[in-house]
Design a protein around this nucleic acid. Structure first.
Lengths: 205, 205
DNA sequence: AGATCCATGTAAGACGTTACATGATTTG
DNA sequence: CAAATCATGTAACGTCTTACATGGATCT
C-alpha cells in the first residue's frame, strides 16, 4: 500500500509542506522510477488526510501571495503511517517496457534494438547518478543508506550486464527491414515468423 | 504501453490459447513481479482484440465441455504488436513497498524490520529460482536469454546486498516497543521522533 | 458427494492520470 | 511585457482489481 496518501504522509514526516512542495519532492525521487504522483491525486489526498486528522492545514498568506496551504503531520498521522508500514508488505512490482520489448528482440529490427539498449543504458546511468547525489546530499539514517545502497547495487549490476551482453541480443535481432509480415504469403514465411522464440518465455519468466 | 492488450498479444505470439490459458501463463511469469493481469481485464481485452481483427476466435466444444474460446493472433495482430514494440518505450516503474518501508526503518521496531528483510530475501530467492527454471525450460532466442540474464544479474546483486548489509539497518531500527508516539507529551519527544532521518531521503532518492 | 479445477463473463468500485480552469508572482 | 514558475483545484476519462454469478468436469 504505497498509495498517494502514504506518499504524502512520508513526505510530511520530514517537514511541513504544501501540495506543490510535495509534488516537487516526489519528482526528484521520481527520476529513479521509485515514486511518483500527480497534482490530481495529491490535492484530494491531502484534503482527505486533513479531514481524517492525520495532518493539519494552515493557510499562509505570506508575502502578499494568495493563500498557500501548508500541511503538517499530526501525532496520529505519524502513528498511522508507522503502523501501516509495520503491517503486511504487498508484493513489489517491476514493470519494464524495455525488458518486455527485449523478450521479442529476435523479431525486431536490429537498429531499433540498438537504440532501445542505448536508451536504457543512458536512463540507468542517470538513475545511478541520482542515487549518488541523494547519498551525497545528506547522510540520513541507516534505513536511507540501506535503500540507496540497495538501489546502487542493483542498478550497477544491471548496467554492467547491459554493456556486456548487448552484442548478443543485437546479433539475434532482425537483420534488415522493419516488421512487415504482410510481405510474406502463407506458407512462405520464415520459421521465426511462425513461431517466435521469445513467446515461450512468457510462459515461465 | 504494456497494457492487457499487449500482454495478450504477446502470449498469443507463441501459440493460440484461451483467456484462461493466458491468465495461467501470466501467473507463472507473475512470480517474478514482471507481468500480471486479472480475468476481469483479460476477457474484455480479448473480445476487443477480436473485434479489431488482431486475433481470431474459435469455439472448441471438445471433449464434451461447454464451449471454450480459443484465440489465435492474425498477421495484422503480429504486425501491430511488433510495430507497437518498436515505438517509443515508456519509462519503467519499480514500486517496492519493501524499500519504501526501509526508508523509515529507523522509526520501526527492530523485530519488524528483521522479518521484512527475511521475507524480501525469501521472495527474491524464489524469483531467482523462477528465472533459473525458465532458462532451463527452453533455450529461447537471444532476446529471451538476455532478459533472463538481466533478471538474474540484478536479482543476485540485490540479494547479496541484502545479506551483507541487513545488520546495519537492523541496528539502526527502534530498539523496543512498536510505534506509540502518543506516549510522549509535546516537548518531551526524543529527537528521532521529531525529525525522522529517512524522510529527507524522499526529497531526492 | 464434495472439493477443486476449468472456463467465461459482468458490474461496481478504487485509483490514478490528463486536461482544463484560474490567477498571482517572479524572472528575463 | 512576456514567459515561466508558483499554487490549487475539478472533471472527465481510462485502466485495472475485486467480487459476484454461473456451470461443467475432474479428482478424492
Amino acid at each position: 500500500m504505497i498509495d498517494v496518501r502514504m506518499l504524502c504522509l512520508a513526505a510530511l514526516m520530514g517537514h511541513e509542506a504544501s501540495g506543490y512542495d510535495i509534488k516537487k519532492e516526489l519528482e526528484k525521487g521520481g527520476s529513479t522510477g521509485l515514486v511518483d504522483a500527480s497534482f490530481g491525486s495529491i490535492y484530494p489526498a491531502l484534503a482527505r488526510l486533513a479531514e481524517d486528522g492525520l495532518i493539519t492545514a494552515r493557510t499562509e498568506g505570506g508575502r502578499g501571495r494568495t493563500g498557500k496551504t501548508i500541511y503538517a503531520i499530526t501525532a496520529e498521522g505519524r502513528a498511522h503511517f508507522l503502523k501501516t508500514l509495520s503491517g503486511p508488505i504487498p508484493e513489489e512490482k517491476y514493470r519494464s517496457p524495455f525488458l518486455f520489448a527485449m523478450l521479442f528482440a529476435d523479431e525486431l529490427p536490429r537498429e531499433r534494438v540498438r537504440v532501445m539498449i542505448d536508451q536504457q543504458i543512458a536512463q540507468w546511468e542517470e538513475k545511478i547518478a541520482a542515487v549518488e547525489a541523494s547519498r551525497a546530499a545528506g547522510p540520513g539514517g541507516a534505513g536511507a543508506s540501506f535503500v540507496f545502497g540497495f538501489g546502487e547495487a542493483t542498478l550497477r549490476a544491471g548496467l554492467e550486464f547491459l554493456k556486456r551482453h548487448r552484442r548478443a541480443v543485437e546479433m539475434g535481432a532482425r537483420d534488415a527491414a522493419p516488421p512487415a509480415p504482410t510481405q510474406y504469403r502463407a506458407g512462405d514465411r520464415p520459421d521465426a515468423m511462425t513461431e517466435p522464440a521469445a513467446a515461450a518465455a512468457l510462459r515461465t519468466p
